[in-house]
């Protein structure tokens, strides 16, 4: 078995004294692991960092083997190391992908959403928090927990959508919510494509996606809690812009 693909490193673990097990989110082979001989060397250290865009040559005698990987750098994205928020974002993305994606299952749509986000972290671009929020929605969608934000679950209207049902993941309008509003999750306008996100909208959006990641996705994946890296990112975003009032 042998293939070559491109992707981004999610994690690197030492394997013995000289090698490393590298986990890469690839375009055509999904989340894939491989043993990199000499991966613990100083020469490889700069390449084998989470967030690095790489080409991965993988080969194994049998498909079920972990296999040997040869990694070549395509882009380092090392700019992220000097940007505190981008670093938190990178950690959150890598750990959520590592946590939620099954091994060796291609997710081309999610890959296409994730690469620009990694690039934004690496270039320390502004405005990535909204892209990150939409990426979390994309993760839910890709893994079968997508939210339906097109129309109200109660009235069918497409106007005035203001909440999401924590059970069904469907949008609910202000009128349709009625007395149930307190039990529903607020739906920020930025997720309906209505203008840029304010800090409060970002916060509401992360509460919304966090709820579905934590209460719908995570329980189906076993007993592990959501990665701590996401909570650190959310806390840091809140510190940047504390809740109004």
């Amino acid at each position: 078995m042998q293939w070559r693909d491109e992707g981004t490193i999610l994690s690197v673990r030492p394997h013995g004294e000289t090698s490393a097990i590298v986990e890469v989110f690839t375009a055509g082979h999904g989340r894939h692991l491989g043993v990199v001989r000499g991966g613990a060397s100083r020469r490889q250290a700069a390449v084998l960092q989470p967030g690095s865009r790489v080409a991965m040559d993988w080969r194994a005698r049998l498909d079920e083997h972990i296999g040997a990987a040869v990694i070549e750098p395509l882009a380092s994205r090392a700019g992220v190391l000097s940007d505190r928020m981008a670093l938190l974002g990178l950690n959150a993305v890598c750990s959520i992908l590592s946590f939620s994606l099954p091994e060796r299952e291609p997710h081309p749509a999610l890959f296409a959403m994730t690469e620009p986000l990694f690039d934004a972290f690496g270039a320390a671009q502004e405005g990535w928090p909204l892209a990150y929020l939409r990426w979390e929605l994309g993760v839910l969608e890709e893994l079968g927990y997508g939210l339906d934000l097109t129309s109200c679950a109660a009235t069918g209207t497409r106007e005035d959508l203001a909440y999401v049902s924590p059970r069904s993941g469907r949008a609910v309008s202000q009128a349709g919510a009625g007395d149930w509003a307190a039990r529903l999750l607020p739906l920020p306008a930025c997720l309906l494509g209505q203008g840029p996100a304010t800090p409060d909208e970002l916060r509401q959006g992360l509460v919304l996606t966090g709820y579905f990641l934590e209460h719908h996705l995570a329980p189906d994946l076993g007993t592990r809690p959501l990665p701590e890296a996401r909570a650190r990112l959310v806390a840091a975003l809140e510190r940047l812009a504390p809740p109004a009032g």
Binding site: A46, Q49, P73, S76, R77, A78, L81, S82
Partner: peptide, 11 residues
């Protein structure tokens, strides 16, 4: 040198 080190050095 790798790209990241050169970027950091330049900054």
């Amino acid at each position: 040198l790798d790209d990241g080190t050169i970027q950091a050095a330049l900054r």
